[in-house]
Amino acid sequence: MSVVEARHVTKRYGEVRALDDVSLVFPEGRFFALLGPSGSGKTTLLRAVAGFVEPEAGEILLDGEDIAHTPAHRRNIGMVFQNYALFPHMSVFDNIAFGLTVRGTSRADARERVHRMLELVRLPGMEQRKPRQLSGGQQQRVALARALVTEPKVLLLDEPLGALDKRLRQEMQIELKQIQRAVGITAIFVTHDQEEALTLSDQIAIINEGKLVQVGAPNEIYENPHSVFAAGFLGDANILRGRVENGIVAVEGAGPVAARGALPPEGSPAVVAVRPEKVRLSAEASAEGVNRIAGRIFQAVFSGTSVTYIIETAVGTQRAFRQNAGERIYGVGEAVVMEWSPEHTVVVEE
């Protein structure tokens, strides 16, 4: 098992900074997600680790050794590409054995190892098929087997499940994680899908505009986002903007808001975030008190297991999420009061 570390990595494309002084440690044996919108630089970082992008400044350490300028083929890093990049002219066997044969592994040895890999990805007996004869999910497994058979130090995955339909994607998420654990390899994967990042990874780094926004375990980032961007990109959030007055956040049009943790200095602006599922709704007439906002149901989005309410308030449109536990569902136009605990109110940076 190996550790990858990026130190002050910078890469520009013309005037655009794809990566701006990014430093990040990918711990041993963990499944690490690089999460961000398209164009955020997450793919550039992955490609820099793979060796397809040469950073202008900074180091990329693999087990302590700088590989930033080592050609890709000398890094011993496995990669699963977005569209799998299976060699169309080769059989499944030749695809998986490719990494072995270019290293001069004997045919017999290669056969044995490819066989084992196909068992691992649950595709035994598929050796002689051509990639185009496989389904999307099967191609994905072959790509994974091909990347793992050379026993690389690190496994990189570029939007690995993006091309699959939703149900298959959920199955593959579980399987991918099982295989990663079984092999015990350090894995880094790039995604723009927050749900995928939450379910698959042990650690998440949120990247935006070439900069690191926040790093942490999924639940840690979810419950304690540091910025408006992190709060909004990983999950959904109600954002309230106000000013610190008497140790509490005064939000114009909504009354006082009490939050967990340290506030900015007295008199300065403050932003807080509240997750929609932490909001309780009631049909009371008045909204006096702390952490209470009056509003009117604008839309109720029913999805079977839950209802998401979109509520018009004096401080803009806010959301509340309720499990469908048999409670009454509010109708459009009904007056409601939103209420939540200070414990669930997080101070974030703009």
């Binding site: 050609p71 000398r74 011993n76 977005q82 990049a85 060699f87 270019v102």
Partner: peptide, 13 residues
């Protein structure tokens, strides 16, 4: 990607 895949698997250019 095909050439990149080959490189990531250890093939020289």
């Amino acid at each position: 990607e095909l050439e990149e895949a080959a490189a990531s698997l250890g093939a020289t250019p």
